[in-house]
């Protein structure tokens, strides 16, 4: 059962990737495969990072309608972009793009999350309070971005707007390789925790009764979640609801509670879904718009459906 689901998900991803690489391709195959391959890698890395981080976050918080994005990562990213345009101007901020900017954004997001998780998890293990603090922090950061954006020249504000949505165009090769390396390493570390995540899913008390140092495990896993979200956000921009959409589908089709299956399954489903959507957008519908705008909208709808279903049960 477990192997079958993973095999089907793997086939789904491979089919999606082949379609993306070859559909409508004309001309120099070397160039096309290199060009599209880079984009495919970006889509895959981001989808896997977002899907796995969401699933781990949901297990730690024992809540399947949460995503780590709710902790204010997106708001912090937008604030960084706004502050850069505010201080350096649109041209100055654009000139900073590249590895230094990627490193700065990743470090800032990890630092902010580290402070939040560190303080909250050291003082108590009240994960609900930590989530609520993250939400409030997100609102504060958004308010600060709103205030700064009113002080920015309207023509330069367009740069902030463009940076505020995740996009897979213009992902630089160096950044992509760095993000891929970090993501693969972190995903491997998360997989080493798969069995412990099964135990954590039984709740804090049961996990401790079964011999887990729950607080230490939660802290360690939160660090991994933060790394995944920070790297993916710094690479392409903020993604809020996509992880929720993928985890909801993965739970439905998995037929198991084992994270050894759930984690790779969610990564494959998410990557396949993002690649298929991008293919449809670019090749079939011939649209230049950002695919994540649509995926996020569908994710938002799933979020509301999950809320309604939970309210009924």
């Amino acid at each position: 059962m477990r192997v079958n689901v993973l095999l089907i998900a793997g086939a789904w991803y491979v089919a999606a990737a082949l379609l993306f690489l070859t559909l409508g391709a004309r001309g120099d195959w070397g160039f096309i495969l290199a060009f599209r391959g880079q984009k495919l890698l970006a889509l895959t890395v981001v989808a896997a990072a977002v899907a796995v981080s969401t699933m781990v976050f949901q297990t730690i918080t024992a809540n399947r309608i949460l995503t780590p994005a709710i902790m204010g990562f997106d708001a912090l990213y937008v604030l960084i972009q706004t502050m850069l345009v505010f201080t350096l101007g649109g041209a100055g901020a654009f000139a900073l793009k590249g590895m230094p900017m990627f490193a700065l954004e990743t470090a800032l997001m990890i630092g902010a999350a580290g402070i939040l998780f560190g303080i909250m998890l050291r003082r108590s293990e009240d994960l609900n309070r930590m989530v609520l603090t993250g939400i409030v922090l997100g609102i504060l950061l958004r308010s600060l971005s709103g205030l700064l954006s009113r002080l920015i020249d309207p023509s330069e504000y367009a740069y902030v707007m463009a940076s505020s949505y995740a996009q897979f165009t213009n992902v630089e090769g160096d950044l992509l390789w760095a993000a891929t390396g970090i993501t693969i390493t972190v995903l491997a570390l998360v997989m080493l925790h798969a069995r412990r995540l099964d135990v954590i899913a039984l709740g804090r008390d049961n996990a401790m009764i079964l011999g887990l140092e729950h607080r230490r495990e939660a802290q360690r896993l939160m660090v991994l979640v933060t790394l995944l979200v920070a790297v993916s956000t710094a690479l392409v921009g903020p993604i809020v609801f996509f992880g929720l959409l993928v985890s909801a589908i993965a739970y439905q089709v998995a037929g198991t509670w084992r994270h050894a299956t759930l984690l790779p399954l969610s990564a494959l489903i998410g990557a396949g879904m993002l690649v298929v959507c991008q293919t449809l957008f670019e090749r079939v519908l011939d649209l230049q718009s950002n695919v994540l705008v649509v995926v996020e909208a569908v994710g938002g709808l799933v979020f509301i459906l999950l809320l309604i279903r939970r309210a009924r049960t």
Binding site: A62, R64, D198, A201, L202, G203, D205, N206, M208, I209, L210, G211, L212, E213, W257
Partner: peptide, 26 residues
Amino acid sequence: PRPIFARRLTALRQATRITPRLTVCD
């Protein structure tokens, strides 16, 4: 250490809610 403690002492808590869809055997 907690892992050794768990081999010596166990506990049943009141009103435990199990969220994953486990079978009894699991």
